[in-house]
Nucleic acid binder design. Structure first.
Length: 103
DNA sequence: CATTTGACTTGTG
DNA sequence: CCACAAGCCAAAT
């Protein structure tokens, strides 16, 4: 069965361990789709509600959440990560510590 | 087939 | 650190 790019990306995201995060660019690269960071965001946007995919473990290359700081989605994502002990400093994650790039 | 769009990234000032 | 520009590329229109 030929996996669609969307499925590859979801699979990669599903493999991100709790307490870690990954960036759009990194996820795309790990899915074998370099330079498709934007596509990652697009696919996540299509993610069905209630999906088991840990979409919140994906942030941008700046170590920040790609949503307006005031938005509900931003706060929800930040909370979910903090619960997994991902530390935020000035609304930013230290990727040197929390970025996941494989096993 | 041309254009727009987007949960991005990197460089510059 | 913030703003803006350019680069990038698959999907949707």
């Amino acid at each position: 069965m030929t996996p669609t790019n969307r499925e590859r990306i979801w699979q990669v995201i599903d493999a991100i361990p709790a307490g870690k995060v990954s960036t759009y660019g990194t996820v795309a690269a790990m899915a074998g789709l370099p330079r498709q960071a934007r596509a990652v965001g697009k696919y996540l946007a299509e993610l069905p509600v209630g999906s088991k995919i840990p979409w919140y473990r994906v942030i941008n290359a700046q170590g920040k959440i790609s949503f307006p700081v005031a938005s509900t989605r931003f706060l929800k994502q930040k909370q979910l990560l903090e619960v997994e002990s991902v530390r935020f400093t000035n609304n930013k994650v230290n990727l040197k510590v929390f970025l996941w790039q494989g096993d």
